[in-house]
Design a protein around this nucleic acid. Sequence first.
RNA 1: CGGGCUGUGGCGCAGUUUGGUAGCGCGUCCGGCUGGGGGCCGGAAGGCCGCAGGUUCAAGUCCUGUCAGCCCGACCA
Length: 587
Amino acid sequence: MLRMSTLFLRTLREDPADAEVPSHRLLVRAGYVRRVAPGVFSWLPLGYLVYRNIENIVRDEMNRAGFQEVHFPSLLPREPYELTGRWTEYGDTLFRLQDRRKGDYLLGPTHEEMFTLLVKGEYSSYKDLPLVIYQIQTKFRDEARPRAGILRGREFVMKDSYSFDIDDAGLEYSYQRHRDAYVDTFTRLGLEFVIVSAMSGAMGGSASEEFLATTEVGEDTFVRCTACDYAANVEAVVTPAPAAADYSSVPKAHAEQTPNTPTIASLVGLSNERADLARADRPWTAADTLKNIIFMVKGPGGVETALAVGLPGDREVDLKRLEAILEPGVPRPFEEPDFTKYPTLMKGYIGPAALGEANSSGIKYLVDPRVVTGTRWITGADAAGSHVYDLVAGRDFIPDGVIEVAEILAGDSCPKCGQGLEIARGVEIGHIFQLGRKYAQALGLKVLDENGELVTVTMGSYGIGVSRAVAAVAEQSHDDKGLIWPREVAPADLHLIATGKDDAPFEAAELLAGQLEAAGVRVLYDDRRAVSPGVKFNDSELIGVPTIVIVGKRLVEGFIEVKDRRTGERTDIAIADAVSALVAVCE
RNA sequence: CGGGCUGUGGCGCAGUUUGGUAGCGCGUCCGGCUGGGGGCCGGAAGGCCGCAGGUUCAAGUCCUGUCAGCCCGACCA
């Protein structure tokens, strides 16, 4: 039994000044966590109870799936990370340290290397596989900017598991088992979540998926369909290409003088103002223009290549999508000096005529999926102050291909059902990933197959942010008064409050608390004598135990009050029936 | 790494413009009252005003430097 009179707990009446997001504010105010350093937190008794409940749910679901728990150190030697290149690849995010002999060590940010080496040391036959092992471990990442309290710290707890299979089919199965286990885990945590494809379509379907707990303070943007169950990372959204349009009635392309129209807005304005350019049926909009943007892309060898992107003028290029699709190439904007290298490009008036590998600039020209054959555009005429009208894709120009980098806007069509998409935010609480043979290759994890041949093992890696899940639940489950824990993760089942100046309520509550404990109910008992009822009520709402029981002024009539923290609904029950009634509530 | 803001008892803040012996609320301690929504009265403890240097008779306040933290962005298995 937890007694408020002795519990190591101090609740705060005011919000801490450095906390912005609700989970951070409330976890600090309710005395669950305290900040120690940027992105580093201590867990106080109530917080640690919640943390452990969540950890145990994660562990339980892993074990149910048949995975085996191991435990690695956090302090790791440099060598394995050197072999996979991550000692340098991880950059400043890696916490590094040296021992007294100047030997390099690191605090593990994730443990692919260690798992791979462990299995390599023990197993050597296909008969040993498949294998899934996991750990629940403190991880360290020296994030450039920790924020949002527990949601994004530099020290955090992660469950990471790794699957080892002989072939792709085995990997697919291990991946699927994790996917199922994650759905069960997050459902049990009471989290509202979506599963989004984490990679661009080109990289292939299910190789990597993220589990995002939906919350407006999340750092990951994703889209989901308002009508069907489609959800995807912004990088991975596929824009459905419209059917090719009939352009038989579209007049021949004609260049027009359009002075001082270097921007889309100015071009659309002028086109509507001038009678000779205006459309008869409707005004021109930015979506009628074809905007061409050039990037310089640095390839892995360090060589820069120009790339032209064409997209409807009402859209911007989403740099994250562009970077994701060009990976490992790195794009940068096309700048003034670059124009001198491509004399046929006229800044502000770049058109398809100059673009494309077959044309004057020789620059590869990729267009948005909406630019299908038959669509007609206003676009640059490659001369200052001049635009081409009625330029038809497929008739007047042929791009080198399609590229999916336009920003996603709310209302865009769902690639699955065609209805509108919405943009939402979430925090990544799980990630499942078919690693393949990268680490097994680098570290030489091979086994003998049934033909006696050495084959490289294929791996998957699967993470759950355990400490982050505490904050994610808090983020999704609170009101203006405080936290509201789902029962299974709550620090207690019941928050029992005794009020009054006489001994009677305290004696009755004491007795009740003992009986409830004996019946297996976890009780947080507010036995403080000198504290006024208002303080106790407010504390109970801040702390967020799902059921609040008050032994107070109605005791003389033989009743106690039961309040549901989430709904606020109150019921009176007879003290004589209290134990059985409350046990029932807590089941 | 770029931009903005802030450093004053445990927490939240005022005081800095205009230099003159450091204040308020909460919390804590002692005594009393109160006892169904952070209640009241009286008393008390607790501060290198981020740090260093400078100006001045005098610096929380002005000047220079520096460190730290927070927020936005970049970044983020």
